[in-house]
């Protein structure tokens, strides 16, 4: 059967890069989960046909430049303030689909107050939370979500709760708040996981447009540079270490 050659034509197309993604080469390290999640956001916006309605809010952290990669309007927030910025946009533009895209340092450390209160007010926005348990952009320092024993630039002997405190599960916390309608924890380390994350993002965006309250999608992710391992090993390490502490699946809604 080796003589059978698949013809490269539109009717045989199964998958191609989303037209919502720009042609800029992403600045992320090879294998970074950010690229995969960006792609899913682009695909969801495209499939829902809401490019003209969507406004994204990018954080401070590696994904600060998310605005370079999607053909939508973006506002870049001060560190931790994405949920407040999104609140300002959504309240004054109720017909827009507003989402934030934030890392663990931005959302769960410096921006905890803004995150919790946007969730509690039930702002009709979607929050995408990339949790890779480390500060990537500043060079691999400890995050609020860094696991006990995990070595980072600011916990070089491993995170010791007596010195550094404990990691916490902010998705579980926001699931307790009346304003959240959907809280889920997903990952992008296998094709099946990527499909589930895409469905979660789609549901979150649909909730926001339907005015059901705040949807919170945590994506347990890798930072292979910060963790100092190869992208493939990082996916394995994530499955063996992060996922037991941050179990995958829907928490609410």
């Amino acid at each position: 059967m080796a003589e059978l050659e698949v013809q490269i034509k539109e009717e045989n197309l199964v998958y191609r890069k989303s037209p919502l993604l720009t042609d800029k080469i992403m600045h992320y390290c090879p294998g970074c989960s950010h690229g995969t999640v960006h792609k899913l956001v682009a695909e969801v916006i495209d499939e829902l046909g809401i490019q003209e309605k969507t406004i994204g809010v990018s954080p401070v952290g590696c994904s600060v430049f998310a605005y370079n990669y999607l053909h939508i309007d973006w506002s870049q927030a001060a560190h931790g303030r994405a949920c407040a910025v999104a609140t300002g946009i959504k309240r004054t533009n109720p017909d827009k689909m507003v989402f934030t895209y934030q890392g663990d340092g931005d959302l769960a450390a410096i921006g905890t107050a803004e995150t919790i209160h946007a969730c509690n007010r039930g702002e009709n926005i979607a929050v995408i939370f990339i949790n890779n348990a480390i500060y990537g952009m500043t060079g691999g320092q400890m995050a609020p979500t860094t696991l006990i024993g995990m070595k980072t630039a600011t916990s070089p002997y491993g995170r010791d709760p007596k010195i550094h405190g404990f990691p916490y599960k902010i998705a579980d916390i926001v699931s307790q708040l009346s304003g959240t309608c959907y809280v889920t924890r997903q990952s992008v380390h296998t094709p099946a996981a990527v499909r589930k994350t895409k469905a979660a993002i789609k549901k979150a965006f649909e909730n926001a447009m339907a005015g059901k309250g705040l949807s919170f999608v945590e994506v347990v992710s890798t930072c292979n540079s910060g963790w100092k391992m190869s992208p493939v090993d990082a996916n394995k390490w994530m499955e063996e270490n992060l996922v037991p502490f941050y179990p995958l699946g829907d928490i609410k809604g």
Binding site: Q7, L13, V14, S18, P30, T36
Partner: peptide, 17 residues
Amino acid sequence: ASCAIMCPDSVITVYRQ
């Protein structure tokens, strides 16, 4: 398309016949 779905940089296009 598993490879393309996983690719963080969206560099893979998939065809099937």
